[in-house]
Amino acid sequence: MTIPLINFAKLTSSDKSTQQQEIKRLDQACRDIGFFYLIDTDIDTALINRIMRAAQRFFAQPLQQKLAIDIKNSCNHRGYGAVGEEQLDEINKADWKETFDMALDLPSDHPLAARYPKMYGPNQNPSDPNVLETLHDYYVTAFGVAMKVLEAMAQALDLAPDFFTRCFKEHVTVLRMIHYPPRPEQTHDNGAGAHTDYGCITLLLQDEVGGLEVKHRNGEWVQATPMEGALVVNIGDLMQRWTNDEYTSTTHRVKASAADTHRYSFPFFVEPDYETQVACVPTCQSNTKPAKYAPILSGDWIQSRFDATYAYREQEA
Protein backbone atom coordinates (compact mmCIF):
# COMPACT_ATOMS: atom_id res chain seq x y z
CA MET A 1 0.00 0.00 0.00
CA THR A 2 1.21 3.50 -0.82
CA ILE A 3 -0.31 6.74 0.40
CA PRO A 4 -1.60 8.75 -2.60
CA LEU A 5 -0.45 12.27 -3.37
CA ILE A 6 -3.04 14.99 -4.10
CA ASN A 7 -2.08 18.40 -5.51
CA PHE A 8 -3.99 21.22 -3.77
CA ALA A 9 -3.25 23.69 -6.59
CA LYS A 10 -4.87 21.32 -9.08
CA LEU A 11 -7.74 20.60 -6.70
CA THR A 12 -8.58 24.32 -6.64
CA SER A 13 -7.58 25.10 -10.24
CA SER A 14 -9.72 27.40 -12.38
CA ASP A 15 -9.18 24.93 -15.22
CA LYS A 16 -12.19 22.63 -14.79
CA SER A 17 -10.61 19.67 -16.55
CA THR A 18 -7.54 19.79 -14.30
CA GLN A 19 -9.69 20.25 -11.21
CA GLN A 20 -12.05 17.37 -12.03
CA GLN A 21 -9.18 14.98 -12.64
CA GLU A 22 -7.70 15.80 -9.24
CA ILE A 23 -11.12 15.55 -7.54
CA LYS A 24 -11.45 12.02 -8.95
CA ARG A 25 -8.04 11.12 -7.53
CA LEU A 26 -9.07 12.60 -4.18
CA ASP A 27 -12.29 10.59 -4.19
CA GLN A 28 -10.40 7.36 -4.87
CA ALA A 29 -7.94 8.06 -2.05
CA CYS A 30 -10.79 8.69 0.41
CA ARG A 31 -12.48 5.43 -0.56
CA ASP A 32 -9.43 3.17 -0.78
CA ILE A 33 -7.32 4.19 2.23
CA GLY A 34 -8.67 7.39 3.81
CA PHE A 35 -5.18 8.96 3.81
CA PHE A 36 -3.31 11.13 1.32
CA TYR A 37 -0.46 13.61 1.08
CA LEU A 38 -1.54 17.14 0.15
CA ILE A 39 1.06 19.26 -1.64
CA ASP A 40 1.20 22.81 -3.04
CA THR A 41 -1.07 24.21 -0.34
CA ASP A 42 -1.44 27.80 0.92
CA ILE A 43 0.70 26.98 3.97
CA ASP A 44 4.07 28.35 2.92
CA THR A 45 7.55 27.41 4.14
CA ALA A 46 7.90 30.55 6.27
CA LEU A 47 4.76 29.73 8.27
CA ILE A 48 5.82 26.09 8.65
CA ASN A 49 9.20 27.19 10.02
CA ARG A 50 7.50 29.64 12.39
CA ILE A 51 5.20 27.05 13.92
CA MET A 52 8.03 24.53 14.30
CA ARG A 53 10.01 27.13 16.25
CA ALA A 54 6.93 28.07 18.27
CA ALA A 55 6.42 24.46 19.36
CA GLN A 56 10.06 24.08 20.35
CA ARG A 57 9.88 27.25 22.47
CA PHE A 58 6.59 26.32 24.11
CA PHE A 59 7.47 22.74 25.06
CA ALA A 60 10.99 23.71 26.22
CA GLN A 61 9.44 25.67 29.11
CA PRO A 62 9.64 24.25 32.64
CA LEU A 63 6.78 21.87 33.41
CA GLN A 64 5.32 24.12 36.10
CA GLN A 65 5.06 26.98 33.62
CA LYS A 66 3.19 24.78 31.14
CA LEU A 67 0.91 23.47 33.89
CA ALA A 68 -0.26 27.04 34.47
CA ILE A 69 -2.53 26.36 31.48
CA ASP A 70 -3.19 22.68 32.33
CA ILE A 71 -5.96 21.24 30.15
CA LYS A 72 -7.52 19.72 33.29
CA ASN A 73 -8.42 23.26 34.38
CA SER A 74 -10.43 23.81 31.19
CA CYS A 75 -13.94 22.38 30.94
CA ASN A 76 -13.83 22.86 27.16
CA HIS A 77 -10.56 20.94 26.63
CA ARG A 78 -8.10 23.74 25.85
CA GLY A 79 -4.51 24.16 26.98
CA TYR A 80 -1.54 21.97 27.90
CA GLY A 81 -1.70 18.19 28.25
CA ALA A 82 1.20 16.51 30.05
CA VAL A 83 2.88 13.26 29.06
CA GLY A 84 0.56 10.34 29.78
CA GLU A 85 -2.58 12.47 30.00
CA GLU A 86 -4.08 11.02 26.82
CA GLN A 87 -4.60 7.35 25.96
CA LEU A 88 -5.79 6.96 22.37
CA ASP A 89 -5.54 3.18 22.47
CA GLU A 90 -8.13 2.39 25.14
CA ILE A 91 -6.58 -1.03 25.89
CA ASN A 92 -2.83 -0.43 25.92
CA LYS A 93 -0.53 2.11 27.58
CA ALA A 94 -0.99 5.89 27.72
CA ASP A 95 0.58 8.00 24.98
CA TRP A 96 4.17 9.20 25.35
CA LYS A 97 3.62 12.80 24.27
CA GLU A 98 2.71 16.27 25.53
CA THR A 99 0.22 18.53 23.78
CA PHE A 100 -1.33 21.96 23.45
CA ASP A 101 -4.89 22.44 22.14
CA MET A 102 -6.66 25.58 20.91
CA ALA A 103 -9.90 26.29 19.05
CA LEU A 104 -12.28 29.22 18.50
CA ASP A 105 -11.77 31.58 21.43
CA LEU A 106 -15.26 32.47 22.69
CA PRO A 107 -16.01 34.28 25.96
CA SER A 108 -17.45 32.12 28.73
CA ASP A 109 -20.75 34.03 28.54
CA HIS A 110 -21.20 33.36 24.82
CA PRO A 111 -24.55 31.59 24.16
CA LEU A 112 -22.81 28.52 22.72
CA ALA A 113 -20.44 28.31 25.68
CA ALA A 114 -23.43 28.46 28.02
CA ARG A 115 -25.26 25.74 26.07
CA TYR A 116 -22.29 23.46 25.40
CA PRO A 117 -19.61 24.31 27.98
CA LYS A 118 -17.55 21.18 27.25
CA MET A 119 -17.03 22.20 23.61
CA TYR A 120 -17.11 26.02 23.42
CA GLY A 121 -15.51 28.79 25.43
CA PRO A 122 -12.18 30.54 26.03
CA ASN A 123 -8.75 29.19 25.18
CA GLN A 124 -5.94 28.87 27.69
CA ASN A 125 -3.20 30.66 25.77
CA PRO A 126 0.61 30.43 25.90
CA SER A 127 2.19 33.39 27.68
CA ASP A 128 4.62 34.04 24.77
CA PRO A 129 2.87 36.48 22.38
CA ASN A 130 5.00 35.34 19.43
CA VAL A 131 3.92 31.73 19.94
CA LEU A 132 0.29 32.79 20.20
CA GLU A 133 0.46 34.94 17.05
CA THR A 134 2.02 32.07 15.10
CA LEU A 135 -0.67 29.63 16.26
CA HIS A 136 -3.41 32.06 15.20
CA ASP A 137 -1.80 32.57 11.78
CA TYR A 138 -1.49 28.83 11.22
CA TYR A 139 -5.05 28.15 12.41
CA VAL A 140 -6.55 30.65 9.94
CA THR A 141 -4.42 29.42 7.03
CA ALA A 142 -5.02 25.72 7.69
CA PHE A 143 -8.75 26.33 8.07
CA GLY A 144 -8.85 27.89 4.61
CA VAL A 145 -7.09 24.85 3.15
CA ALA A 146 -9.48 22.49 4.96
CA MET A 147 -12.55 24.24 3.57
CA LYS A 148 -11.24 23.86 0.00
CA VAL A 149 -10.62 20.15 0.60
CA LEU A 150 -14.16 19.71 1.94
CA GLU A 151 -15.57 21.52 -1.09
CA ALA A 152 -13.68 19.10 -3.35
CA MET A 153 -14.99 16.13 -1.37
CA ALA A 154 -18.56 17.41 -1.74
CA GLN A 155 -18.09 17.71 -5.49
CA ALA A 156 -16.62 14.21 -5.63
CA LEU A 157 -19.79 12.92 -3.95
CA ASP A 158 -22.04 14.83 -6.42
CA LEU A 159 -23.19 17.23 -3.71
CA ALA A 160 -23.37 21.03 -3.69
CA PRO A 161 -19.83 22.41 -3.15
CA ASP A 162 -20.88 23.96 0.19
CA PHE A 163 -22.61 20.82 1.50
CA PHE A 164 -19.98 20.37 4.23
CA THR A 165 -18.50 23.86 4.54
CA ARG A 166 -21.86 25.48 5.38
CA CYS A 167 -21.67 23.55 8.66
CA PHE A 168 -18.59 25.50 9.82
CA LYS A 169 -20.01 28.80 11.08
CA GLU A 170 -19.39 28.15 14.80
CA HIS A 171 -17.20 25.09 14.39
CA VAL A 172 -15.15 23.24 16.99
CA THR A 173 -12.05 22.74 14.83
CA VAL A 174 -8.96 22.19 17.00
CA LEU A 175 -5.31 22.97 16.32
CA ARG A 176 -2.97 20.84 18.38
CA MET A 177 0.78 21.05 18.89
CA ILE A 178 2.39 17.76 19.88
CA HIS A 179 5.84 17.07 21.28
CA TYR A 180 7.03 13.47 21.40
CA PRO A 181 9.98 13.62 23.81
CA PRO A 182 12.80 11.06 23.77
CA ARG A 183 11.74 7.69 25.09
CA PRO A 184 13.45 6.68 28.34
CA GLU A 185 15.09 3.29 28.52
CA GLN A 186 12.76 0.37 29.29
CA THR A 187 9.68 2.42 28.37
CA HIS A 188 7.03 1.24 25.89
CA ASP A 189 7.29 2.38 22.27
CA ASN A 190 3.81 3.92 22.13
CA GLY A 191 4.01 7.58 21.12
CA ALA A 192 0.33 7.78 20.20
CA GLY A 193 -1.73 4.61 20.40
CA ALA A 194 -3.57 3.06 17.48
CA HIS A 195 -6.75 5.05 16.84
CA THR A 196 -9.00 6.72 14.32
CA ASP A 197 -9.71 10.46 14.41
CA TYR A 198 -13.11 11.68 15.55
CA GLY A 199 -14.10 14.47 13.19
CA CYS A 200 -14.43 15.14 9.45
CA ILE A 201 -10.84 15.37 8.26
CA THR A 202 -7.44 15.96 9.86
CA LEU A 203 -4.64 17.99 8.29
CA LEU A 204 -1.33 16.94 9.79
CA LEU A 205 1.91 18.89 9.52
CA GLN A 206 4.85 16.81 10.76
CA ASP A 207 8.57 17.42 11.10
CA GLU A 208 11.26 15.39 9.35
CA VAL A 209 11.66 12.79 12.13
CA GLY A 210 8.79 10.51 11.13
CA GLY A 211 6.96 7.87 13.14
CA LEU A 212 3.39 8.05 11.82
CA GLU A 213 2.11 4.66 10.64
CA VAL A 214 -1.12 3.82 8.80
CA LYS A 215 -2.83 0.42 9.05
CA HIS A 216 -3.64 -1.30 5.76
CA ARG A 217 -6.76 -3.43 5.54
CA ASN A 218 -4.53 -6.51 5.40
CA GLY A 219 -3.16 -5.59 8.85
CA GLU A 220 0.18 -4.24 7.61
CA TRP A 221 1.47 -0.99 9.13
CA VAL A 222 2.77 1.45 6.50
CA GLN A 223 4.97 4.45 7.31
CA ALA A 224 3.67 7.90 6.36
CA THR A 225 7.15 9.16 5.60
CA PRO A 226 7.52 12.94 6.04
CA MET A 227 7.49 14.90 2.80
CA GLU A 228 8.82 18.47 2.91
CA GLY A 229 6.04 21.05 2.68
CA ALA A 230 3.29 18.41 2.50
CA LEU A 231 0.37 17.77 4.81
CA VAL A 232 -0.90 14.29 5.60
CA VAL A 233 -4.70 14.33 5.39
CA ASN A 234 -6.98 11.62 6.72
CA ILE A 235 -10.70 10.93 6.98
CA GLY A 236 -12.25 10.95 10.46
CA ASP A 237 -15.04 8.88 11.99
CA LEU A 238 -17.65 11.60 11.54
CA MET A 239 -17.04 11.79 7.79
CA GLN A 240 -17.20 8.00 7.55
CA ARG A 241 -20.63 8.09 9.24
CA TRP A 242 -21.73 10.99 7.02
CA THR A 243 -20.78 9.08 3.86
CA ASN A 244 -22.20 5.71 4.95
CA ASP A 245 -18.71 4.15 5.01
CA GLU A 246 -17.96 5.25 1.44
CA TYR A 247 -15.05 7.29 2.80
CA THR A 248 -12.76 5.38 5.16
CA SER A 249 -11.56 6.41 8.61
CA THR A 250 -8.33 4.45 8.91
CA THR A 251 -6.48 3.38 12.05
CA HIS A 252 -3.08 4.98 12.57
CA ARG A 253 -0.47 5.33 15.32
CA VAL A 254 2.81 7.06 16.16
CA LYS A 255 5.88 5.24 17.39
CA ALA A 256 7.64 6.83 20.36
CA SER A 257 10.76 8.86 19.63
CA ALA A 258 14.11 7.16 19.99
CA ALA A 259 16.65 8.23 22.62
CA ASP A 260 17.84 11.84 22.16
CA THR A 261 15.19 12.50 19.49
CA HIS A 262 12.41 15.08 19.75
CA ARG A 263 9.49 14.94 17.32
CA TYR A 264 6.92 17.70 16.69
CA SER A 265 3.67 17.50 14.79
CA PHE A 266 0.58 19.66 14.30
CA PRO A 267 -2.74 17.92 13.67
CA PHE A 268 -5.60 20.21 12.65
CA PHE A 269 -8.83 18.46 13.57
CA VAL A 270 -11.57 19.80 11.29
CA GLU A 271 -14.89 19.49 13.15
CA PRO A 272 -18.18 21.25 12.29
CA ASP A 273 -20.68 23.21 14.38
CA TYR A 274 -21.90 21.32 17.44
CA GLU A 275 -25.51 21.30 16.22
CA THR A 276 -24.69 19.92 12.76
CA GLN A 277 -27.09 17.06 12.10
CA VAL A 278 -24.90 14.32 10.66
CA ALA A 279 -27.16 12.04 8.63
CA CYS A 280 -26.20 9.92 5.64
CA VAL A 281 -25.67 12.11 2.57
CA PRO A 282 -28.22 11.34 -0.17
CA THR A 283 -25.65 10.21 -2.75
CA CYS A 284 -24.17 7.58 -0.39
CA GLN A 285 -27.33 5.54 0.16
CA SER A 286 -29.73 3.58 -2.01
CA ASN A 287 -32.28 0.77 -1.84
CA THR A 288 -29.43 -1.72 -1.93
CA LYS A 289 -27.26 0.25 0.49
CA PRO A 290 -29.43 1.87 3.17
CA ALA A 291 -27.98 4.23 5.78
CA LYS A 292 -26.00 2.30 8.42
CA TYR A 293 -25.96 4.99 11.11
CA ALA A 294 -28.68 6.90 12.90
CA PRO A 295 -28.43 10.71 12.65
CA ILE A 296 -26.38 12.32 15.40
CA LEU A 297 -25.33 15.83 16.37
CA SER A 298 -21.69 16.38 15.51
CA GLY A 299 -20.89 17.79 18.94
CA ASP A 300 -22.48 14.89 20.79
CA TRP A 301 -20.30 12.49 18.83
CA ILE A 302 -17.06 14.46 19.37
CA GLN A 303 -17.74 14.93 23.06
CA SER A 304 -18.39 11.22 23.57
CA ARG A 305 -15.02 10.40 22.03
CA PHE A 306 -13.17 12.95 24.18
CA ASP A 307 -14.78 11.50 27.30
CA ALA A 308 -13.56 8.02 26.36
CA THR A 309 -10.00 9.18 25.64
CA TYR A 310 -9.13 11.45 28.58
CA ALA A 311 -9.28 10.09 32.13
CA TYR A 312 -10.15 13.47 33.65
CA ARG A 313 -13.21 13.89 31.36
CA GLU A 314 -14.32 10.32 31.99
CA GLN A 315 -14.33 11.07 35.72
CA GLU A 316 -16.38 14.21 35.15
CA ALA A 317 -18.86 12.30 32.98
Rank of each mutant, 00 (worst) to 15 (best):
Thr248Lys: 15
Ala55Thr: 09
Arg57Cys: 12
Asp300Ser: 13
Trp242Met: 06
Asp27Cys: 02
Ala308His: 04
Val140Thr: 14
Asn234Pro: 06
Pro62Phe: 08
Ser298Gln: 08
Ala68Cys: 09
Tyr37Thr: 02
Thr173Gln: 10
Thr41Ser: 09
Thr99Glu: 11
Trp242Asp: 02
Asn190Lys: 11
Ser14Gly: 13
Glu22Ile: 13
Asp109Ile: 03
Tyr247Lys: 03
Glu98Cys: 07
Pro282Trp: 00
Asn190Ser: 09
Ala9Asp: 14
Arg305Lys: 15
Gly236Val: 12
Thr165Asp: 03
Glu246Asp: 07
Ser14Arg: 13
Leu47Thr: 08
Ile69Gly: 01
Ala114His: 02
Ile48Glu: 14
Gly199Leu: 08
Asp70Trp: 06
Leu5Val: 15
Val174Ser: 03
Pro129Gln: 05
Val145Cys: 12
Leu47Phe: 13
Ala114Leu: 14
Leu203Asn: 12
Gly191Ser: 05
Thr165Gln: 05
Thr243Ser: 15
Asp105Ala: 09
Cys75Trp: 05
Arg57Trp: 12
Leu159Glu: 06
Gln285Thr: 13
Lys24Arg: 06
Asp162Trp: 10
Lys289Val: 09
Pro161Lys: 07
Tyr310Phe: 15
Val270Trp: 07
Thr248Glu: 07
Met153Gly: 04
Leu47Ala: 10
Ile178Phe: 11
Asn287Val: 09
Arg31Gln: 14
Leu112Gly: 00
Gly84His: 04
Phe163Met: 10
Leu150Pro: 03
Phe36Asn: 02
Leu5Asp: 10
Asn244Pro: 04
Tyr120Trp: 03
